[in-house]
Design a protein around this nucleic acid. Structure first.
Length: 471
DNA sequence: TTTTGAGTTGTTCGA
DNA sequence: GTCGAACAACTCAAA
């Protein structure tokens, strides 16, 4: 085969890239292509921060390719049209791409495969959705048995991680658009795009003096700590392969020096399996992207109060942890996982707003926003999904704050008007006596909002709403 | 086919 | 302050 197209979608890396490796095996020269698809670009789900991260990732990938005698060709338009014309321009014999299991991608790829020689490689996940199924070949809908089966499949070995190719021979004459520059990453977003950064973060998480992976199980819950890997945006765009992450997790488990350390590393591996679980759920049940998995919970009488929704979005609910979470999201494009659960629970249960509103807001603001994981997380919190939280499990934002941000470091960082509030009141500032409000420079109702709902009453309200919906 | 055990992440109440 | 039970059944997965 003379020329092959490597169609890049969410695998912005050269290391352990199976689509690229297959193309290199089969063809003498490779044309790396990214198609800016207006259907995704203009979608209500797209967010400027994620798009900026993607464009930055394309620039980084282009630089990495140029160091290997290649370059990235960027086109804009419907992928089908652009690929067809590229194929004509280069007389490419095949188009290699990493399979994407989300509903839009499957529809798009199905149509393209009907006309063009598209070869899809399953490497979005360690184990493709079709391989982690029950003995009767039907999909799992509960996490624990899914993960048990996942773990019985042969783990990827260290040498299965494909090396970075030294050279990528590429035809020189194919014109490319410039990578759009108008959307640059806002300065508050702490995620430099590119696979070099992803590799750095992975090794820092695994191999530093005191590897965070061996403290992950507890540390990850503290919102003011740096206990998570912060790899989600990189996994989202394939700047790091799931397989390489899993290999790293397995090797950390194998070299753990205590039961405790081992358990912590296993907890992180479990998070990778959660990612694959929700990818599998969306693959087998594409309808979840539009409605609740559980048919009996599709008619909850949501209040959907617009003013309250806006207060939530902007981080002005009067509940410090919730507001810190929402402001972190807005400023950085990322939110701590524990904070995601608290903020999501507050929207759905305390405000009784349709979980899909929150799902959309997260997609519009998260750099790591992924249709499968985000949908799964929201349905879990709302208690309407697979393997969902029981509906009576309502997070108490004050207790969650006291437990997972005891000194209020997280709150003070993202809600500066509470900076000088004593720790005793940091998660319930409305309890401050007037003199303490004055002393801390934070008058409730003036410098910081009065809570927009009373949690105890809101809890009763949501419990009865869910009870009614079910009966 | 039937049975049995189990199910990410919580809160509240009363002893 | 700490502890166990209740919250509500229900469905899934596997024996």
């Amino acid at each position: 085969m003379k020329t092959a197209v490597w169609w890049i979608r969410r695998d912005l890396r050269l290391t352990d890239n199976q689509a690229l490796a297959s193309a290199l095996e089969q063809a003498e020269s490779i044309l790396p292509v990214f198609v800016l698809d207006p259907a995704l670009w203009n979608s209500r789900r797209a967010g400027p921060k994620r798009l900026a991260f993607l464009l930055g990732g394309l620039r980084a990938l282009d630089a990495d390719l140029r160091a290997r005698g290649s370059r990235l060709v960027v086109r804009q338009g419907r992928p089908r049209d652009e690929l067809a014309s590229l194929q004509a321009e280069t007389s490419a014999d095949a188009i290699y791409a990493e399979e994407d299991d989300s509903p839009y991608a499957r529809r798009r790829d199905g149509q393209i495969a009907a006309d063009l020689p598209l070869r899809l490689i399953s490497s979005l996940t360690v184990h493709p959705p079709m391989t982690v199924v029950k003995p009767d070949r039907t999909p799992y809908t509960v996490f624990t048995p899914f993960s048990r089966t996942w773990k019985t499949l042969s783990p990827p070995s260290l040498n299965s991680v494909l090396p970075t190719p030294a050279r990528v021979p590429t035809p020189t004459s194919v014109p490319s658009l410039a990578i759009p520059m108008e959307l640059s990453l806002p300065s508050g977003v702490p995620f430099p795009p590119g696979e070099a950064e992803a590799q750095c973060r992975l090794s820092r998480f695994m191999d530093s003096d005191r590897p965070a992976i061996y403290h992950y199980a507890d540390a990850r819950n503290h919102m003011g700590w740096d206990g998570t890997s912060q790899l989600s945006p990189y996994l989202r765009f394939g700047m790091l392969s799931a397989r390489q992450a899993a290999v790293a997790a397995y090797s950390a488990i194998a070299s753990a020096t205590s039961m405790e350390a081992r358990k912590n590393a296993e907890t992180w591996l479990n998070e990778l399996i959660w990612r694959e679980f929700y990818i599998s759920i969306l693959y087998h049940f594409p309808g979840v992207s539009r409605q609740a998995f559980r048919a009996d919970l599709r008619d909850i009488p949501w209040r959907n109060d617009l003013q309250e929704f806006e207060a939530w979005c902007e981080g002005n609910t009067g509940y410090p942890v919730v507001d810190a979470a929402m402001r972190q999201l807005k400023q950085t494009g990322w939110m701590h996982n524990r904070a995601r659960m608290i903020a999501a629970s507050f929207l759905v249960k305390d405000l009784l707003i349709d979980w899909r509103w929150g799902e959309r807001w997260f997609m519009q603001n998260l750099v790591d926003g992924d249709p499968a994981a985000n949908n799964g997380g929201w349905q879990w919190t709302a208690g309407v999904g697979t393997d969902a939280a029981p509906y009576f499990r309502v997070f108490n934002p004050v207790l969650q704050g006291q437990r997972f941000d005891p000194a209020g470091a997280y709150v003070r960082r993202w809600v500066p008007e509470l900076e000088n509030v004593p720790s005793k009141f940091i998660h319930q500032p409305w309890e401050m006596p007037a003199d303490v409000q004055h002393a801390s420079g934070c008058i409730i109702g003036q410098d910081y909002p009065t809570p927009i709902v009373n949690h105890v009453e809101a809890r009763e309200r949501v419990l009865s709403a869910y009870r009614r919906a079910q009966s």
